[in-house]
């Protein structure tokens, strides 16, 4: 990879934690053939920087102040099949892995992994952006095969997570840009699927069965 004739790999790092951005960008800058083309701390900022810099790879945190890293992944993947998209997260749980994969990410790395793993995931993603690299994928697949938890739609998951945040119907409606009655319908379906009759019960059941693994939407 240290071929002098090739242009360096250009990377954009997205994380709302400054210390993480600093540490990671140093790790990337230590590589001779990689340059850090930009840093961002939010979804909006990231999309702007990416549009300006057109990097080869984006490494993004999942939980950001104005949305999730998956929003970035989805937005880019809709138009661009060749950009490497690495999801870097503190969250664990199979659901995140699948969500990243379905959103079109190229790799999924935990924040406990040393920076060389992040770097090598970035290199991988630049070469084959549409394959999915994740060390825990096989195990997650096996567990999913035996999964008998209730299946929630994407919307229902979002509503559930906001319920878990302690938001009321009106607030949820505001966050998700839907009418209150639609939110109520989703909540009713959620309760039905979770066998709950109120918010606390739904929350407890969701926790017990591991349905609350999604990133809290902010």
């Amino acid at each position: 990879m240290s071929d002098e004739t090739r242009s360096p790999l250009r990377v954009v790092l997205v994380d709302d934690h400054e210390l993480i951005r600093t540490g990671l960008s140093r790790a990337f800058e230590r590589e001779a053939d990689i340059t850090v083309a930009g840093l961002a701390g939010s979804v909006g900022q990231a999309l702007q920087v990416i549009a300006e810099q057109r990097p080869d790879v984006v490494v993004t945190d999942l939980q950001l102040p104005d949305g999730t890293g998956l929003d970035i992944v989805k937005t880019i993947r809709q138009r661009n099949d060749r950009m490497g998209l690495v999801v870097l997260t503190m969250h664990s749980g199979d659901d995140h892995i699948f969500a990243a994969m379905e959103a079109g990410a190229s790799a999924f790395v935990g924040k406990d992994a040393p920076s060389r793993e992040v770097v090598s995931a970035a290199r991988h993603s630049a070469i084959s952006p549409r394959t999915f690299l994740c060390s825990g994928l096989a195990g997650a697949m096996m567990r999913r095969a035996n999964d008998d938890r209730p299946r929630l739609s994407e919307r229902e998951k979002e509503v559930l997570d906001l319920l878990a945040e302690g938001l009321g119907t009106a607030q949820i409606a505001g966050r998700l840009y839907m009418s209150e009655s639609t939110v109520k319908t989703h909540i009713a379906k959620l309760y039905q699927k979770l066998g709950a009759t109120n918010r606390a019960q739904a929350l407890v059941t969701a926790m017990r069965t591991g349905l609350l693994s999604a990133v809290n939407p902010s």
Binding site: L19, G23, S115
Partner: peptide, 14 residues
């Protein structure tokens, strides 16, 4: 704390 520790990790890598 989790983010801070992860960041320290990257610094130690350096």
């Amino acid at each position: 704390i989790a983010q801070d520790l992860a960041a320290f990790g990257y610094l130690i890598d350096g």
